[in-house]
Amino acid sequence: MPSAIPRRARRRGPRRFTRRDLLVTGVLLGLPILLDLAVIWGPTLASVGLSFTSWDGIGDIEWVGGRNYHDLFTDYPPFWPAARNNLLWLAFLGLIATPFGLLLAVLLDRGVRFSRFYQSTLYMPVVLSLAIVGFIAQLILSRDQGALNAVLARDNPVDWLGDPDLNIWMILLAAGWRHTGYVMILYLAGLKSVDPSLKEAAAIDGAGARQTFFRVVLPTLRPVNVIVGVITVIEALRAFDIVYAVNQGRNGLELLSVLVTDNIIGEAARIGFGSAIAVVLLVVSLGFIVAYLVQEMRQGKVPGGDRETRRGKVPGKAQEKGEEERR
């Protein structure tokens, strides 16, 4: 059956759409594309341009070539700590928070009682706004008034937020706190749709719970893995609000996005310089994501690698599709 579809699709080729179809598609696909270009990509390119200039947002824009980048790498003390913290963030979310979210999802998927309660509780941190996250950090970690010192170290208080070697780990915990719930919900949704007969079949074959998970369940979660992977990278590289709420991202809590904010959004108005930091951040993000997507695409299971899309053009893919459907 499936093999008939691509041929039909191909045969109808260009006359597939009526004029009305073309109009609808043109307008409704054109609008988001236009918006994306006008609001996101256009300004991004403009920012790349601005990164080679010096501008205070008021006076004239002055071309300075690569000076901003030179200053950034050689004469801006917060830059390297910020880059390091962003990578640390990525490693922590990717290696700890994301797998932890997956673990919770797997446990909850086993049909435990009170599952909805657990889900809601674990998801709660995701909906919180900046102000309350900052307050909660103060509440728990404040050296003089916080709950943690009240419990652990009454006489010899630890400076959880002020010690630049320590505070980043506390903040990573807070970031993980928010990230875990997010990831858990995504995976939970994915797990709900794993065909239980697959698991049963594996169980009959004598596979243990762990084996079933790694050999059967995880591979079928591939589309979720892609989304979670992308989200983890985004969250790690765009991370901003928690440190900003805690101490405006200073004293050990530097992040690239905070440096961009300090220079562009705030009173400082070093727009060219801030844009240069943003461009660095952009290049790093794009590097990660494109590498990730390309790798995933090779497997042919991501939006980019879209099997339906290809099916119309590449008849050879029909075979694979057929196999998947039987599964």
């Binding site: 404040s142 050296r143 003089d144 937020l161 002020g162 505070n167």
Partner: peptide, 15 residues
């Protein structure tokens, strides 16, 4: 007071 970078001025004034 030690640990000033982790203390808000309000907490300082509080002491």
């Amino acid at each position: 007071q030690q640990g000033a970078n982790g203390r808000t001025w309000q907490e300082a004034a509080q002491s």
